[in-house]
Design a protein around this nucleic acid. Sequence first.
DNA 1: CTGAAAGCGCTTACAG
DNA 2: CTGAAAGCGCTTACAG
Lengths: 334, 334
Amino acid sequence: MRDVAALSGVSLKTVSRVVNLEPGVSADLVERVQTAAAALQFRPNLTASSLRRSDGRTQTIGLVLENIANPYSSALHRAIEDVARSHEVVVFAGSVDEDPARERELAGTFLARQVDGLIVVPAGADQSYLAHELRAGTPMVFVDRPPNLLDADAVTTDNFAGARDAVRHLIAHGHRRIAYLGDLSSIFTAEQRLNGYLDALERAGIVLDADLIWQNLRSSDHAQTAIIELLTAAEPPTAVFASQNLVTIGAVRGIAALGKQFEIALVGFDDIPLADLVSPRVSLVIQDVHALGAAAAELLFDRINGSDLPTQRITLPVHLVTAGSGEITGPFAA
Amino acid sequence: MRDVAALSGVSLKTVSRVVNLEPGVSADLVERVQTAAAALQFRPNLTASSLRRSDGRTQTIGLVLENIANPYSSALHRAIEDVARSHEVVVFAGSVDEDPARERELAGTFLARQVDGLIVVPAGADQSYLAHELRAGTPMVFVDRPPNLLDADAVTTDNFAGARDAVRHLIAHGHRRIAYLGDLSSIFTAEQRLNGYLDALERAGIVLDADLIWQNLRSSDHAQTAIIELLTAAEPPTAVFASQNLVTIGAVRGIAALGKQFEIALVGFDDIPLADLVSPRVSLVIQDVHALGAAAAELLFDRINGSDLPTQRITLPVHLVTAGSGEITGPFAA
DNA sequence: CTGAAAGCGCTTACAG
DNA sequence: CTGAAAGCGCTTACAG
């Protein structure tokens, strides 16, 4: 900027005015400065300008995800990117892999770089470490899972209702021995979905069989092994509720490996790619991930732009998409 | 930092020393400063420190991707994130959607935020707009596609050999009418793959039928429509080479919709999720996306850390994974 | 071992 | 309409 001022023969301040499109500079000087800037290929240093600027904005936000490469995370990421872009803001993103220490480290890394706000899919059970920065004025929105021990905005999905509806659907098709396959039980969404499963069974008067509940399946391979074990046990289930996308993929593979895809009913939670190409097609509880990300981002930018409404907790609905696998009838079908 | 200095009764410079773990501060003062910093929940402002620091490093890099939500892009992103993390660097990422104007805008946005380097999957046919910054010392590495009109490092895949091998494989299984389905013909990888297809045909002495070549299929839906049209035409192909992941998905759907999945041979380029659950399983040309991203990131950090080797062009091999769909024999099988 | 002064590239707050 | 001085939060280059 100093070079541009020298070349165009004006003060630093005048260059700053032209670069920031401030009014009240004579057309003659605007022209001279623009010519000099173009000649020098001048690009303003945004980090320096944000340092001095009264609002301190860096036009960046940080996004703490479970795993950038997971289709769920990356769909969320894209929805947030699109909103951020409309505000001329760029996005830092990183993966936490369900590690609370990594969550904290990543959030801190973003805050040290003066992000204007943070969107977090929390991995840990305690986000109070963010209280100081939140109070100091850095807006934060939690998505997919609410924060713990911290009062902040959150946008989540109705996991309980989705799981309950899925299991009700299986019961309505004549099943009573319904297995639950789930991810880490410490994850908020996994807990909610287990509760939905338990609620549906209870309301139908079905006595719980704890042997049918397999949690902490951390990959599709684990889920595949688990379902094969379940289905080859003495008293196998006739239906399966798979409570997460990777778990559903493992369940589909395991059932197919046993050749039982037309015998065992299956409903999964969350979309899986190419669900429509498998035979039978997989019935799924679908959440609108794009809407989830967009809502979180809108909330964040409202805060960044000064909103001081009370803490918001938004829950988005899910819906069951029947496709075949969930409509295989069981021994108690009417 | 000023507050920490005041609270601990030392100078700014001493706080700076303690925060940056510089040696030569008495244990007594280190302790006092650390106590004060903890009490104030002090977090150093990295943007301010990089402004004054002699190397100007912000510990950030920018990543220009086709579409963050595409599995190919997000796998690349994760590989790069992992390398960046080992250097204590965080990653800005954004989607370009094959729009050259957006590519330029996004790269400029990252550069304005003083990134230490840039990794780009170029969408446009001219990256000379980056020459000034590259010469000024901001390292850049291109990945998946080489830069145009710019001398910079690039890591790409052997698209030509992969496509040629796929088509040779189909020819070896008795096919002569082999369709080519591809993405935007302007994309480097699409062009290379078409060339591989043409080369395999020519070497086998098969006369080209231009009606079998469908390019510019921008989504799996387009690919699905295209293949249905091809297969219901007067002289349909007996085999299909689908040159990109979304195109392959559309091809699988289209062939299945016609009930011809056990008649029409298919080989796709790039991995598709759940390829192993479709019947028959889909034979694919696989590239090591993780290795591609890691190689690009390593190259970038070498440059950031001062490497001044001549421009590098790395090409990674691909391999054909036979799984069923590509081994369906055609009318000229031996 | 410790600190006072200057400056990174920009904006603010002011004067003319 | 234009510009000189001060300062954002930190590090550099130096002195003691």
